[in-house]
Write a protein that binds this DNA or RNA. Structure first.
Lengths: 220, 220, 220, 220
DNA sequence: AATGAATGAGTTTTCATTCAT
DNA sequence: AATGAATGAAAACTCATTCAT
């Protein structure tokens, strides 16, 4: 009884947290892995940032690699599906859709996911299966999304008839690199270029480059 | 005679190899580090790829970190200066200069340096001083180069008056990301988008976006 | 009740051992270092003698050198303060005090500390700061103690008026050397000169040499 | 011929030095070993101090241990024989002989041999056979010398009848420790006690302690 | 004979993983 | 379930020793 009561006081918190443990660990893991890379990240630090002890991490993940993979999966899975729904259901112009997609992604950059992209790219050599999976489930699906938008935009006469595959790649690059950059060398840029200026210029450049002749004066 | 020659032009093998060792080690180091990251790279493997034993590496570099830094420095220093000279001495149009610069860089991507960029970006968190140095000596200088080209292109009426700083960033991104991508997830792209298509589309998009009104029909 | 006690007086084994670990490691370290010297001592052996694994040593000391220094500090600090108190509070004759001090020290020789002196003396060249510290905190303080005894003995007319500084040195030497010898070549002396004979002769010689004229017949 | 002549210019020096190599190496070895201890001494440094390359050392000594032993043997062997001859041929009083012996030894302390004693004492645990040899060939022989002097001094009525074995030990200690001390912690003594004061006091104390009653006023 | 570049065995040190509490 | 002390495999690093020149 004494034993029970002594832990009863903490029970609500404990019980609530217990369920949240895996998520908390994953969150901490993304942070630390993105900061240091897989090999240089210390499990003890992940545990500390999650507010638990080293041993606890092993109750939820069999080893460091599993935690790493869980972190990548977790962070990545949701967004892309959202994007796919957006495209399917979109009513407006292709240009607006494209702009919408880019803005969505821009919002991701500063978040945890930006660092994650850096991490995956850096560790691709050490985790080939994970890299392959990520490529297929994220990169490829994202790429198809861009292709779809471009294709319909061209069909609707909004965009010039471009090399769709290649253009999808090129358009995605500044976003992708911005994500990586922000979580890496970008920290040493003083004063940093404000995100707004970057994104505004980026959108303008891409859309100016894509816009069909007749559309030209429509937008700046 | 033979005696004299042995210590001169046809220096003894040992001597000749000694002179070449640091470069050989650095070359191997860039490869391995770019592949695995700093922490996961094993010095023994670097040594093996350089065709020497573990101990030999320590004859030329006091420790792993020094080798890492030497590798970064070595690979990076030359190119940027070349670029600066090109810009200074350029006689043709700004568009051609920009195209020339992008082509130059494109040629770097597949080489050792592409992997290096990935490496630096990934390790920025673990080597802040190196990151700061790289940012200043490479990123910043490269950025100024692009700014100069844009500025003169606008002055000459070739380019639209854009936000120079931001545009320089945006323009550089696809190249930078392509470099990283090629040495990472790009390996899982099947079939991979050919470089030529990527670069052609990239150049077109950027130049179409930049070109001043009157220039419009001049080029595809 | 049992629950309470388990976290109190009869602390869990792990906990209890943890508290004892540093001391156990230091004890083993003094042994091994004194036996082999710093460089030749292997940390694995220190750990083994302390009954733990290599890695455990690093839980308590950041590296070999830190363990070495901790060992020296630990062993040395207590005794000298005891000696200082003795001298301050002494009631009897100076001769008796001197004899007491020498006896005290003699008891140290065979113990761990004897080997430690050898160790410090041997490693002075490799650990200059430690040597300086030891000289100041141990050698110098011990020297002042001997000076004090001699000075008061002379003031009381018990001892001849000698060069105090020099005599303090000379008197201490046989003890110091005996300590070193015992833990070194002394092992090859067969049959070894018994400690009692050494100390008896040593005390006699020193006191005979110090004793003032009038005191001469008083003692053998 | 050209080859020969090119080295002919240097020949005299070279030839002369060649013969001296082992001795030069030993000299350097004693220095470095005494400074750092056997394990911490680097063969490269020994070679450098001897003015040759690492490889050359291996032409004369099969390995580090052999060089170490050669160093110990070399330095030690001569002196003790000299001492034995002195004692055999001595004409004067025992006191004068004892004083002569102590003075002889004092002259050794500051020299290379002082450091060597420290070295041997420190390494006794790592080189048992060498320690045994040293004990027998040096320590034991030295001890017998002191015994002989004391014995004849007592026989001649110069010295009090003391425990000869033990007294020989005690008398030797200050010299031995002074030797060790000088090459170790003594460097941190500021201002250092001058050798003259040490030796004068030491001789006085020992002789005052030894001198037979009747002899008392004869000397200070 | 002499050199010093190269080697690799042997240590130190780190940290993912285990397990008694 | 949670902890964190302990482990030991793996990697960095050192340096005696070898050997091509």
């Amino acid at each position: 009884m004494e034993v029970a009561s002594s832990s009863a006081a903490l029970a609500p918190t404990r019980r609530r947290r217990k369920a949240a443990r895996p998520a908390e660990l994953i969150e901490a893991a993304v942070e630390v892995f993105a900061e240091k890379g897989f090999a240089a990240a210390r499990l003890e630090e992940v545990a500390r940032r999650a507010g638990v002890s080293k041993g606890t991490a092993y109750l939820y993940f069999p080893n460091k690699e599993a935690l790493f993979k869980a972190a990548v999966h977790e962070v990545v899975v949701t967004r892309i599906a959202m994007g796919e729904r957006d495209v399917e259901e979109w009513q407006g112009s292709s240009e607006e859709l494209l702009r919408h997609m880019l803005e969505q992604w821009a919002s991701v950059v500063r978040s945890r996911q930006g660092g994650l992209l850096k991490l995956i790219v850096a560790e691709a050599g050490n985790f080939p299966e994970l890299a392959a999976w990520y490529h297929q489930e994220v990169a490829e699906r994202g790429h198809r999304l861009f292709c779809a938008v471009l294709r319909s935009g061209i069909a609707r006469g909004e965009f010039r008839p471009v090399d769709i595959e290649a253009t999808a790649h090129v358009i995605a690059c500044p976003m992708a690199f911005r994500a990586i950059w922000t979580h890496s060398l970008g920290r040493y840029e003083t004063p940093a270029l404000a995100d707004e200026r970057f994104y505004h210029t980026y959108f303008s450049l891409v859309l100016a480059g894509l816009r069909a002749e007749g559309e030209r004066e429509a937008r700046t």
